[in-house]
Amino acid sequence: MPFARFVQPGRVALVAEGPLKGKLVSVVDVIDQTRALVDGPGSGVPRQQIRLNQLHLTKFRLKFPFTAPTRVVRKAWTDEKLNEKWAESQWSKKLENKEKRAQMTDYDRFKLSSARVKRNRARTPVFKSLKAQAARKGVFGKKKVPKASVKKPRVKKETSAKKPAKK
């Protein structure tokens, strides 16, 4: 597959390391093969050069001419509503969840694991019965499985199978 994201004027990137880690910047100019001039007026990053291996390119691209001054970048940033778009993206949500997980205390971890146990207790028997039904119908192949050989799933209680909010 060809590359789809390039270090080009307007390309929005996430800083992967260093003091600016986790902040969005937009490439303003490419200095050489390893460095670029970036600016982040919408994320509080002053205009500066940065090494390319510190950047993770995103799918977003702002529209402004290369070497545009900060005010132009800012206008493009706000007009594009980049901050909102970024917050909606899967990538940023994953980062958020990662942060949440890292902030979890010992008790939170216990709560999560006990919630998962609860969910799986409700879910597994249902899944197994569906699977057995499907096997009997011959979904997984022509060979039909006789009913006798299927073990009855042990259902303790058909409690509310609602998924606890995954933290």
């Binding site: 890292a102 902030q103 979890m104 205390t105 010992d106 008790y107 216990f110 709560k111 006990s114």
Partner: peptide, 20 residues
């Protein structure tokens, strides 16, 4: 239940990076 259960580390859990 929390007090009844024992603490343990899973894979890729590092106590110096975790919050307690």
């Amino acid at each position: 239940g929390y007090l009844r259960s024992a603490f343990g580390l899973r894979s890729s859990q590092y106590p110096h990076r975790m919050c307690f």
